[in-house]
Structure formats: C-alpha cells, structure tokens
C-alpha cells in the first residue's frame, strides 16, 4: 500500500514541481539521511524491567508537577498509559504470547523528518542538528494539527490552560545535551536499557547485539526506517506490534505524504486564472457577437419594415387622391345637376 502511494507521489513529484523548504522532498531523487552526528537513544526491550526510574528522572529534570501516584508505585503498570501534558515519558507493560511481560518506554521518537514539524503552520517545531525535535511555544497558535499528524501519538496539549496552553512533549533533554550531559531518563536507567549516542553509532550497536544474540532479538531495528527514520531506536525480542509499536506506518516520511498535494498549489494558481480568464473571454466574445448580430437583424428588419410601410403609405395616398378626385367630380356633377333642376323648376 505504502509503496503504491510513494509511486503515486513520485509521479506527481516527477511532474517537475518541487516544494523547497524544511520538509517536502519527495520530488526527484533527493532524500534526507538526517543531520550527520546527530544524537539519539537506543531502547532495548529485553533489558527494561519497568522500574519507572526513567519516568521519575524525566519528571524531575523537566520540573513537571508531581503525579497522582508515586513513581515507586508499580501497580500503574497494570493499565495502559500514554504521555500527557504533565508526563513526557511512560513505561507500559505488555503481556506477550511468548511468555512474561515485556516493558517498553514511550516518549517522542524525534523523527528525522518529523510529521509535527511538517504539519505545523507556524514552524513551531524543528529538527535540530543535535537530534532533538524542538518546540517553540512563543509562536504556537494551538491548532493541534501536530497531534493529528504524529503517527506515534506523542504531542499532548494543556487543555486546562485557558489563556496560554502549550503543546508538551519530550525534548530529548536538549539543554542537557548541549551542556554535554545525558538525557535524564538515560542517566537514570539502572539496567542500561537506554543507550545514548550518535544515531549512526546506535545502529551499529543494535546490529552487533542482534548478531551476537540472534535468539534473543528479532532482526529489526524499529525506527531505522519507520516514517523515514527516527532518532529514538528500538530493539526487541518480541514483535514490535506486541509492545505497542505499530508496524504498519510505512517507510515514507511525513513530508513525502503531503508533497503531492502541496505540488498542486502552483498548478492551480498558474493554470486556473488562464483557463477561467479564457472561458470568460470566449463567453464575452460570444455575447458581443450575439449582440452585434441581434442589432444587425433589428436594423435590417426595421429598414425592411419602413420601406414596406412607405410604399404602402404612398399607395394608400395615391388611392385616396384618386378617390378624392372622383368624389369631388361626383359632388360637382350632383351640384350641377341640382342647379340644372332648379333652373327648369324656376322656368316652369
């Protein structure tokens, strides 16, 4: 399915319209492998024991409000949880068919070509060269399209904030990374389930582990290519769909999904005025010709009618003249006759 969609988008892209900006690069053969040397985190599901130490560290580092249940209360693992405006990371427990629970940590995956950044209409999100996807609340309008777009359901919103709500999500502890320190969760993990490093290194480490323990791991690094690749990577001994990571996301990055639609903008903006203007001009000309023909037809009809009327009139006039003359003659005759009659009477 996703292959077909990419083919379709590729065809549209090949039409020669490139939308050049931070994201839409589906057109042509350009692609983005991520910033060189950018950082990421490798999560090893076979090592995580669900102790929630990472959650506690995240809460402290980001100065988030204290949760309802304390972080050493492990009963919360019995229900499925997700990130929210006060929680940037959660660990969930998954019962798997292969026996025993498997734990998986959830937080922003810091995509190489983030859907949130592609979707944001004020550029509040950015993929930073260090690897973190950053968020700038100072321009955020609060449309929440990032939350619609994110395939991992990560961004959350401060719905209870009436005047200055923000989108909230994991920052990969970018300020700490810039200081040369580890992200809070990585530092706190007691089992080394989290490994921090450059993404390229992490992929090598993950490959080595999979090679060394082929029975322990599935031969797949989740996040290496999913949605165009993410900075947070996962390896696991059970299928990723069993630990809440969707395997049907495809490998196309978010910008590739929308580049076709965006490429239509210059087509419409360029073609429509020409076509519609042409249509208008044709109709206008048609109307003009119709008007002209009508006027000519009327003129002709008027001319013909007046000529006819004139001849009719002159015929009628001459007829009337003849009649008049005759009537006069008759009158005169009668007058003469009457005069003659009177004369004979007087004589008689």
């Amino acid at each position: 399915m996703s292959i077909k969609r990419r083919t379709f988008l590729g065809l549209i892209g090949a039409a020669g319209v490139t939308v050049a900006s931070t994201g839409a690069r589906a057109a042509g053969n350009a692609h983005f492998d991520g910033y060189p040397g950018s950082k990421g985190v490798l999560f090893d599901a076979t090592r995580c024991i669900g102790c929630r130490k990472c959650e506690a560290a995240c809460n402290a580092v980001n100065e988030l409000p204290a949760p309802a249940e304390k972080f050493d209360d492990l009963t919360v693992l019995d229900r499925s949880r997700r990130t929210d405006a006060k929680t940037f990371t959660v660990v969930n427990k998954y019962e798997t068919p292969s026996g025993g629970p498997v734990y998986r940590k959830m937080q922003c995956n810091h995509c190489l070509e983030p859907a949130c950044a592609s979707a944001c209409f004020v550029k509040a999100f950015a993929k930073t060269p260090e690897g973190a996807v950053s968020y700038d609340a100072s321009v955020c309008v609060g449309c929440r399209y990032c939350m619609i777009a994110c395939p991992f359901n990560i961004p959350t919103y401060e719905y209870d904030e009436p005047l200055s709500p923000r989108v909230r999500k994991c920052t990969m502890c970018r300020p700490r990374i810039l200081e040369g320190r580890l992200p809070g969760c990585v530092e706190a993990c007691p089992k080394e389930a989290l490994t921090f490093g450059t993404r390229d290194e992490l992929i090598k480490i993950a490959r080595k582990r999979i090679e060394k323990y082929p029975d322990r791991y599935l031969d797949h690094i989740y996040g290496e290519r999913e949605m165009g690749g993410t900075s947070w990577l996962y390896i696991s001994g059970v299928p990723f769909s069993q630990i809440g990571l969707r395997e049907d996301l495809g490998y196309a990055s978010a910008p590739e999904l929308t580049s076709g639609a965006l490429a239509a903008v210059p087509v419409v903006a360029g073609l429509w005025p020409a076509l519609l203007g042409g249509l208008w001009a044709i109709n206008k000309r048609k109307e003009k010709i119709a008007r002209q023909e009508k006027r000519e037809a009327v003129e002709n009809a008027v001319a013909r009618a007046s000529a006819e009327a004139e001849s009719k009139l002159s015929a009628a006039l001459s007829k009337a003249e003849v009649e008049n003359r005759r009537r006069i003659e008759v009158e005169v005759k009668r007058a003469l006759e009457e005069a003659g009659l009177n004369d004979t009477k007087e004589e008689g």
Partner: peptide
C-alpha cells in the same frame, strides 16, 4: 509572523 509553508493547514 512565521509561515509554515510545508503545512497543508
């Protein structure tokens, strides 16, 4: 202020 031109929105 800040045009996010890659966004359909």
């Amino acid at each position: 202020l800040s045009q996010g031109t890659t966004s359909l929105l």
